[in-house]
Nucleic acid binder design. Structure first.
Lengths: 232, 232
DNA sequence: CGTAGTATTGAGGTGAGTCAACTGCTGTGG
DNA sequence: CCACAGCAGTTGACTCACCTCAATACTACG
């Protein structure tokens, strides 16, 4: 740890840190402080970043690529918790609650992550109230999403469940939306089988509510009709 | 607002504040600072504390009683998000994300709450790193619970969903557990109908896994058998 | 161009929702 | 203190939407 090329590594870490929304509002010298306790991690496509049971006291921030977070049930069925795109982070639960990971994290593309240890982050927070506000904001945001997902999943019928999801990621407006994950992952995320998802999507297409573009895009044609199908 | 009985009201608010886990680790003078920006609210059983659409920049902490948080879907179906017992708090999402409430809060018993405005809390956090750590902890904890709920709800079959829930609140050990809410609320929370819940509970009783004691208690007899039925 | 993984489509069985009737707490007022 | 009202919870019969299993089409990648 002694004779590292401090200048160069800080450059790289600054790039990572400055990309991340949580750190966006910090002043230049504060960013440098954050970058100094940051360590970059590379994960090739398909690699596991961490798995269940590991005691991790590290915050992972995705800089480049995509990481998929999922639970593995006894019968081998994967439940996707969420998908992290650049700027998103994981590990905050382990960070603040002294618990082992209960999920797996896997890179779905070649990815670059930054890591910050629990101790470093605690120190940073103590000295930077803005940082704690940003973290609280981010956590509150995540919480809102998780509660929305829970509300969606409690709906017994698959069609309104899907419609509610589409409505949410489309921002309730017509237009093209990118699906953040594969359809089989999406199906797991929405608590249904890929078959059901396929059928329900088809039904929405037939009804003129949406159009599917390739594998990872959906075009919302009639957001009003979507709202009718969706709950709330 | 001018000639309030400052001493008396601070007494009352201190009691509220000191009961709350988030503030537990603060020193006496810090507690007083918190109490000074706190305002108590009383809610009779059945009263709505706040409802959808209200712009609230207030943190509500339950001191006495119980508050039920729920979404209301278009068809009148209630989805219970969670139930707040003394020490729990709500409003943090509105607090940190500039958004209107998307849920209703209703007192299920005569309740006492403390409120803190957004501006006051921001000020407090700036001056007290410990407080922000405590808040981050609490939010991370909530997030974990919400993600667990989402994972549970994604399970298509009702029995493992219920078993998973029982396993969680029992701490994976045999013994008597108190249900934190009524069975119809629990059914909504678990994404099933009260009828299904009743039937699945009955099945677990028949199989010798649990015993029901009155309306609000369940005794886990065979935690190993429960684990077999539950996912993960 | 071929192969492996991803997505779709079809047919059939079943678990859970719906509707309705009934039971048994619980708390309230006479 | 008891009786009754009202609601929480249970039970039963029926229906249907979704899961399962299996075969086929498509698409990305070597």
């Amino acid at each position: 740890m002694a004779h590292v090329h401090q200048h160069e590594s800080i450059e790289q870490e600054l790039e990572c840190v400055s990309q991340v929304p949580i750190f966006q509002r910090l002043a230049a010298d504060q960013l440098t402080s954050v970058a100094q306790v940051t360590r970059p991690v590379l994960a090739k496509k398909g690699r596991t970043v961490f798995s269940t049971g590991e005691v991790s006291q590290t915050l992972y921030i995705v800089n480049v690529g995509q990481v998929r977070l999922y639970h593995l049930t006894e019968d081998g069925h994967e439940q996707v918790l969420r998908v992290l795109n650049p700027g998103d982070f994981i590990g905050e639960i382990a960070l603040f609650t002294d618990e082992i990971h209960s999920s797996y994290a896997e890179a779905t593309q070649d990815s670059e992550l930054c890591t910050i240890s629990r101790a470093s982050l605690t120190d940073l927070i103590t000295g930077m109230p803005q940082l704690s506000m940003a973290l609280l904001n981010a956590l509150a945001d995540r919480l809102k999403t998780a509660e929305r997902q829970a509300t969606l999943l409690a709906i017994p019928d698959a069609l309104p469940r899907l419609a509610g999801y589409l409505q949410e990621i489309s921002g309730r407006q017509a237009g093209v939306i990118d699906l953040p994950m594969s359809k089989q992952d999406l199906a797991a995320y929405l608590g249904m089988t890929p078959e059901s998802l396929s059928r329900k999507l088809r039904q929405l297409v037939k009804d003129g509510v949406i159009e599917t573009i390739g594998r990872r895009q959906v075009k919302v044609l009639d957001s009003a009709a979507l709202a009718t199908v969706a709950p709330d």
